[in-house]
């Protein structure tokens, strides 16, 4: 039986799932390429956390939608225009500094966000979020430590970390956007309102960037559109790799 909130709830859950999957995939691209073995393990672990979160969210989204789509159908059989992830997470890995700064920008938001979502009136989202929050606490700690080490490191690492920050900053505005779909869910206590979390995110930024001797970029023009399916050209390339097997051999399992 469809209820009033089914369609928004599906959309909302899908957004969270897509963001987790795409960032998880991005991190997995580092495995085997990291500068040191500890970071190889760290990327594998963080990617696994995110893909695990995505699986739980996709399974629930499919259930809410009620059209028989499971986690695999949602992850593998939608095109770029149907993806609803934040633009930040689809940005290329770039160098190590770029990836770590991206992880820091996202995790500094995701950790308190999932903590708040753990109090959602939707029991399934609350359960997934309670676990995700604990995982994201490690991500933000790890990424923040690296941001400091790189920023307050050599001239080379400082310059690269500052470049990464400038490049990624225009994607941070979207994180706090709320559209009518989310507003409706926020009003009934299902979704999280990101606005009150902004002060905490700002504080995390100021504390960590300060210690890293990095300059916080000014909030200028902000990129937007991921939640409406308007993506950068990078997403199609991610999906071509992520979805290749299911597209080439539909229904393949192992």
């Amino acid at each position: 039986m469809a209820t009033m909130t089914d369609a928004p709830l599906f959309q909302y859950t899908l957004r969270l799932a897509d963001t987790a999957l795409i960032l998880g995939h991005r991190l997995s691209e580092w495995v085997g390429h990291s500068p040191v073995i500890e970071e190889d393990l760290a990327f594998g672990n963080m990617g696994l956390d995110l893909i695990g979160q995505a699986r739980a969210l996709y399974a629930y989204a499919g259930e809410v939608e009620g059209k028989g789509r499971d986690e695999d159908a949602l992850a593998y059989l939608r095109d770029a225009g149907d993806y609803r992830n934040l633009l930040l997470v689809e940005q290329p890995n770039g160098d190590f500094a770029n990836t770590m700064v991206r992880q820091f920008l996202y995790a500094a938001f995701a950790h308190p966000y999932f903590e708040a979502l753990a109090a959602s009136k939707d029991e399934t989202l609350a359960a997934i979020a309670a676990k995700a929050a604990k995982e994201m606490a490690y991500h933000v700690r790890h990424a923040a430590e690296w941001t400091i080490r790189l920023g307050d490191g050599t001239d080379e690492s400082h310059a690269r970390a500052q470049d990464a920050l400038e490049e990624l900053w225009p994607y941070t505005g979207e994180i706090f956007e709320v559209d009518p779909i989310e507003r409706a869910l926020i009003d009934i206590g299902v979704a999280v309102d990101p606005a009150p979390l902004r002060a905490l995110w700002n504080k995390t930024m100021d504390d960590v960037l300060g210690e890293a001797t990095l300059v916080r970029p000014r909030d200028g023009y902000m990129q937007s559109g991921g939640r409406a399916g308007r993506h950068s050209e990078h997403l199609g390339h991610i999906l071509s790799e992520l979805q290749f097997l299911q597209r080439a051999y539909p229904g393949a399992t192992w």
């Binding site: 500890e38 970071e39 393990l41 760290a42 594998g44 672990n45 963080m46 696994l48 956390d49 490690y138 700690r141 790890h142 430590e145």
Partner: peptide, 11 residues
């Protein structure tokens, strides 16, 4: 390192 041989362990 914060992340070890499995998700639940650190080095």
């Amino acid at each position: 390192s914060e992340f070890g041989s499995t998700a639940c362990k650190a080095l």
